[in-house]
Nucleic acid binder design. Structure first.
Length: 148
DNA sequence: ATCATTTGACCGCA
DNA sequence: TGCGGTCAAATGAT
C-alpha cells in the first residue's frame, strides 16, 4: 500500500478484508473487520466510504458488537451497533446463526448502522494519535502491529 | 516468521 | 441482472 488515505482510529484494530467500487460513488468502499475476531465472536465490522462530493469526508459505518478493545481508548462510545436494540444482540447466538444480528435492516426508516461522517485532512493519524492510543496500552505488546 | 494488506472472483440477495 | 458483500490467495512489510 502506497499511501491510501487513512481512516480515523476508533481504538480498535481493523483488518481490511475487501474493497469494492460502489455504484453512485466515484471512490471505492473499503471493508474492515476486527483484527481480533475473538475466534469467531467479534462481529465488529466497519465500512469506510468517502463521499464523492468531499473526497476528504469519510462516511464510516459501524456494524456489530465489539469485544476486542485493543487499548482503553474511549475515543468513541457508540451504542455499539444500533441494530443491537432490535436483535437483542446475542454474540453466541449470532455465531451459531451465522448471520449478523443486525443484518436484515435496510428499511429507510430504521437506521441499523452508525454512520459517522468526518472531515479528514491530508495527514491523518499522525504520531500524535497513535502516541496517545498506543500510550495507553501496556507496552503496546498487545496487538500493536503497524504502529508508527 | 508473522501479520496485514492487496486483487480477483464468487456468491447472495434485491 | 446487477450490486453489494465476503472470502480466498498471494504478496509485501515489519
Amino acid at each position: 500500500m502506497g499511501n491510501t488515505e487513512l481512516p480515523p482510529d476508533d481504538g480498535y484494530t481493523w483488518r481490511k478484508y475487501g474493497q469494492k467500487d460502489i455504484l453512485g460513488s466515484r471512490f471505492p468502499r473499503s471493508y474492515y473487520r476486527c483484527t481480533h475476531k475473538n475466534y469467531y465472536g467479534c462481529d465488529a465490522k466497519k465500512k469506510v466510504q468517502r463521499l464523492d462530493d468531499d473526497p476528504f469526508m469519510y462516511e464510516v459505518t459501524y456494524c456489530g458488537s465489539h469485544s476486542c478493545l485493543t487499548s482503553t481508548t474511549p475515543l468513541l462510545n457508540f451504542p455499539t451497533a444500533t441494530a443491537t436494540a432490535t436483535a437483542t444482540n446475542s454474540p453466541t447466538a449470532a455465531t451459531g446463526s451465522g448471520l449478523a444480528p443486525a443484518d436484515h435492516f435496510m428499511a429507510p426508516t430504521e437506521q441499523a448502522a452508525v454512520s459517522t461522517s468526518m472531515h479528514l485532512g491530508v495527514g491523518w493519524m499522525p504520531a500524535s494519535f497513535q502516541g496517545v492510543v498506543a500510550g495507553s496500552g501496556a507496552g503496546g505488546g498487545s496487538s500493536a502491529g503497524m504502529q508508527t
